[in-house]
Each structure stands twice: as structure tokens, then as C-alpha cells.
Design a protein around this nucleic acid. Structure first.
Lengths: 231, 231
DNA sequence: CGATTGTCAATTGTCGACAATCAACAAGAG
DNA sequence: CTCTTGTTGATTGTCGACAATTGACAATCG
């Protein structure tokens, strides 16, 4: 998750396809492109002012992140999100985070706990200020930190695909009525369990933390897929 | 992995890029293309008698399966395999299979056990006939069956990337001196544990099964990366 | 009227040519 | 001699044009 360089006067020279990936990915996870929506190559290429070649390469890329679905000769659509998808997403997420947690605890590195605590403080502050969007961002940071700290690049890669779609789900179903302060509070016991190297407790907590969130979303998915209902 | 259709007189009409993916993937996991080897687009395109466009799309695809590494403006290489990579590969594999096993047992579907048993019988027969290659194939089938039976398409997708690279590792390091009959035998206790819905035993067994294999390979990796030593 | 077959427009797939980029090497200044 | 600064050749990135495929609809036949 620590991308790019820290040098401020370094100009990026990514190939077009990568910038296209970034743009489209953002459009999808932010809900601007809705699940099921067809992505017509000529249309999008024209919109972006580029040719179809780099766009197609970008679509290949996104299809492997699970964000779009490419059907030969038929076209590309933003991958539909069924209830089963969400259940699978959250259950796999749970497995991956549990694994990360176990490695984290095995490391027993105090720096990890410090960083997590800092993350928690930031989240709490944002929650108390009522900044829902910021809380969500920091929540993502928290879980990314968990994964990255586990020092497992293959896990990080795998996590990336999963978390992107989780983010998509959360955006489409942003329940504005939840108590964000409570959300922040929920993270503290996990950190404490890590600090005390209590693996059993930590894994139990994280599994509850994630499963409950997943179940909550999955339960209601088919009844009211999007917040505003527009396709 | 039950792909394609069962209709015998159905002719496939995959786009070129997909056939290219199949060819290159096979070349990589079979060890024909060695880790670190550069894949020069013009060269390969000419070799396959196609243009670069579908080849490039295929390379994008493979890069997400973790089989090649694309560096912008620098080119594509078969992804190098370090010892750390192998450790990560096997540790994640372990996590994924454990998860599959838990779901499998939760299902408690006798069909699964029947299929696994059949797989075991085939493996044993092949082992007794000394057909090492067939044993390896059936071993792969066994683990794929484990994953597929768990009814979790996201897990299957994730597994696919991991198992491909595992296969690559095993090909590059095919220890001809192991007792293949013993390899077959090792699978039986796992099946029995599943049949008896003993989750704890089953997970312990599969974790031993995989970790030991992984450690064995990782330990010696840097000292003698390939079987014949040629780059 | 129902089923089959032909046609067409929309879209994706593939290609060859040209532009942009990079690493390595050569040339020159200090 | 060493460091910097062109130059160059190989390779990847991008483009516009053309070919192939699909699904839907129209035409035809029984």
C-alpha cells in the first residue's frame, strides 16, 4: 500500500494502461460505474481520449482484480455483485486477515503495535468529529496495515483484489446510520490482543469483527442492492 | 477444474489471446521457460505467428497470475522464484486449503468423500505402477478437488494462481528419489478425517502435509535451484 | 402461424506501422 | 582517469484501420 516514491519532485511516467487502470478502478470501487454496467471500448476510449489498445490491456488487468468481467466477442461489464459474492468476499477476507494476524503476532514487533495504535487514535478522532468518510478511509488503512505488517507479499497481492471489492461493496451500501464512534472503538481490543500476543483472542476478535460486518451487508443485499436504487 | 463443455462436438472459439495464455502458461509451469527468462514480444509473436496486440493482452493476464513480471518500458520476464516466494506460496496455500477443508467438513456431503476416495485409489494405483508423472497429476487433482468441493468460487480463483506457481516449483524441482507410494498413502488419513468430520484432525493433517512439502523444497532452493542447473 | 434461415448493425479481435522510452556505450570535458 | 553528456539500437507503448464474431431482427418456407 505504500506506493510511489516519497520524492516530491519526481514525475510519474506510468504507461497509459496503468493510468487507465487507476481511473477505471476508482470509478468502479467508488460506485460511479455500477455492477452490471457494460463498458463499451470505443465509448470509453473516446471519453478518455485514447485508443482502444491500452484500454483493452487495462480491462484485462481489471478482470483479474475481479472488478470487471470480460466475455469474448460479447464485451466487458462491471462485475455484478451477488449476495453469494459478498459472502465469499467476506469469508475469504476473514481467512486472509486471520492469517496476517497470526504472522503479526509471531513477529512480536512492537513497531507494529505502535502503528496500529496510531491508526486507532486517528480513527477515533475522525469519528468524534463525525467525519464518516475519513473514518472509512482510516478503517481501510488499519486493515491494510495489518496485512502489510505481516510481511507476506503474496498475501498482500491477494488481499489487494479482495479489499478492492470489499470497498466497492461498502461504497454501494454505505449505511449512514451506523455509529462511527462505535466502529472505531471496536478496533481497540484487537490491538490489545496483538500487544499481548494473545493469538487465540486476536483471531477470535478479528473473525467476529469481519463476519458481523459481512453478514450485515449480505443479509440485506438482494432486497435493496444500492443506496438510491438507480441502476 | 471442470472447464469447457461436455458436448463432444462443440468446437472452441477462444480469442487468440486466450490460446496464447494457455500456451505460455504451460510453457512456464512446465519449466520450458525458466524463471528470470526475458519474454521479448516481437520474438514470441513471431514464433507464434501472431501480432503483438493479443500477445500483450496475454502477458497482462499472466502477470496477474503471478507467472510473469511486466516492467513498464523494460519488458517482461518469467517471474523469478526466490526462496521467500516459495515459503510464501506454500504458507498461503496452506491457509487456503485449510479453509477449503473447513467448508468441506461443514457441508458434510458424502459425495465429496466418495470423490476424494476415488482420487486416492487412482493415485495409489498409479504409484504402484511407478508412474511418477501420473501420480503428480492425480495429486494436483486431489487438491483441486478439495478446493472446488468447498463451493467457493472466489477461493477457487485465488487457489488457481497459487497452485499454478506451486506446480511450477514442483516441476523445476522434481525430486525423482521420493517414494511415490508413500506420497499416495499420505492422503488417506486426510480423507478419513473428513469422512469423520473431525475438523481439528483434518486441518492438522493438511497443514503438516503441505508445510512439510514446502519446507523441504524451500530449504534447498537457493543451493540448487534447478534440477539440471542450466539457466 | 411457427420454425428455420439469411442479413445487418454493433462490438470486439487482430494487425502493421509509428512514437516513446530505456540501458548501454561512446565521446568529450575537467 | 573519472565524471558527465550525447547517441544509438533494441524494445515496449500507442494508434488507426480492417477483419471476425455475435445477437437481434427480417425474410422465407412449410
Amino acid at each position: 500500500m505504500s506506493n510511489s516514491t516519497n520524492n516530491p519532485l519526481h514525475i510519474e511516467n506510468k504507461p497509459l494502461r496503468e493510468r487507465v487502470v487507476d481511473v477505471l478502478r476508482e470509478a468502479i470501487v467508488s460506485g460511479e460505474f455500477k455492477p452490471g454496467q457494460p463498458l463499451i471500448e470505443m465509448e470509453i476510449a473516446a471519453q478518455l481520449g485514447i485508443s482502444r489498445a491500452p484500454l483493452r490491456e487495462a480491462l484485462q488487468f481489471l478482470s483479474h482484480e475481479g472488478l470487471v468481467e470480460v466475455t469474448p466477442y460479447r464485451g466487458t461489464v462491471v462485475k455484478p455483485l451477488t449476495r453469494t459474492d459478498i459472502e465469499e468476499l467476506y469469508s475469504l477476507r476473514c481467512v486472509l486477515e486471520t492469517f496476517a494476524l497470526q504472522r503479526l503476532i509471531a513477529q512480536n514487533n512492537p513497531d507494529n503495535v505502535i502503528k496500529l495504535r496510531q491508526c486507532y487514535e486517528d480513527m477515533l478522532t475522525a469519528a468524534q468529529e463525525g467525519d464518516r468518510k475519513l473514518v472509512n478511509n482510516i478503517d481501510r488503512q488499519f486493515h491494510n496495515l495489518l496485512i502489510d505488517s505481516s510481511q507476506h507479499s503474496l498475501l498482500s497481492t491477494t488481499w489487494n483484489s479482495v479489499s478492492l471489492r470489499v470497498r466497492q461493496v461498502m461504497t454501494l451500501r454505505n449505511r449512514k446510520n451506523r455509529d462511527i464512534t462505535q466502529i472505531a472503538y471496536n478496533h481497540l481490543p484487537i490491538i490489545e490482543a496483538i500487544a499481548q500476543c494473545d493469538e487465540l483472542l486476536a483471531t477470535r476478535l478479528i473473525q467476529e469483527h469481519i463476519s458481523s460486518a459481512g453478514d450485515l451487508i449480505a443479509e440485506l443485499w438482494d432486497t435493496a442492492p444500492t443506496e438510491d436504487g438507480k441502476a
